[in-house]
Write a protein that binds this DNA or RNA. Structure first.
Lengths: 142, 142
DNA sequence: ATTTAATAGTTGTATGTACAAACAATAAAC
DNA sequence: GTTTATTGTTTGTACATACAACTATTAAAT
């Protein structure tokens, strides 16, 4: 079968899933005016005012350079401010940023509702947990 | 917990896994001089000489425009040729492309071996299958 | 105290992927 | 047989993410 080695490759299936879910997420977060990753960064700031870029990079599992770029854009949009303190730079939420908070959480709920409706709450949760653990396993062994 | 909504979000876990596995794959395919997606496209051509872009797009689950771009690069590298036949354009492998065949398959084997060593053959296979099916479910319901 | 190493962040550059709009070729409808 | 719709591919543009190299700050070692 032509497609067999596609179906049987984690590289491919993982990327495909990522594309499918990303599309859904972009869709749900669209009303907030933010792409999903930006929204998650905002959530991390809501949770900890004055969080550092390093911490963001760890929580979001993104490279520091990527976080720098995300922050740039969010500062441009005046949703956060960045205050450098020694070699670190700490991130704070603006009023405009705070105003988005409930909308962002709503989008997040909608996203989960949407895929859980298709997968079932239990399968959705299990899958999510599973992916997290597998990523951990794979990352540790590098 | 700060990270809870990250761990609990399929968007995030799926993307994280995708990044982790992509890195592994890039690593394993590096000796072939190709990024993994290009290598998979080559495999599809090995399997069916004269395959059309539409078919490639379906097999690889990528947008047509993306396939156009991939092909552009592979033609540049003289690994394939593209012959337009009516409105379709059909893809053939060059000698140089054929010469890569066994190396590419080797890389693919190494990739699977590498993550199976960490996850266990069974968990690896199950996960891969699972991801494929979940993507199908999610895509059908759009 | 000076030198050296480690840590945090940034900048230039590259890549994979996509969307929307355009174009070209075929098929359907009238 | 023309017009209209559909299908396959391409082009312009945009975005998320990363790596490698760099700067700046703090900590360790001598």
């Amino acid at each position: 079968m032509l497609e067999s080695y596609i179906k049987e490759c984690l590289y491919f299936t993982a990327n495909r899933l990522s594309r499918v879910v990303t599309k859904m997420a972009e869709d749900e977060f669209a009303v907030s005016g933010l792409a999903p990753t930006y929204a998650f960064l905002m959530m991390a700031v809501y949770d900890k005012e004055g969080i550092s870029q390093k911490e963001l990079s760890e929580i979001l599992h993104l490279q520091p350079s990527t976080v720098t770029r995300l922050i740039e854009k969010l500062v441009q949009k005046k949703l956060i401010t960045s205050k450098s303190e020694g070699r670190r730079s700490l991130i704070f939420c603006t009023e405009k940023g705070k105003a988005l908070k409930s909308l962002i959480y709503e989008c997040w709920d909608n996203l989960r509702a949407r895929y859980n409706e298709i997968l079932g709450q239990e399968q959705g949760d299990l899958l999510t947990l599973n992916l997290y653990q597998v990523s951990d396993q794979l990352e540790r062994k590098e």
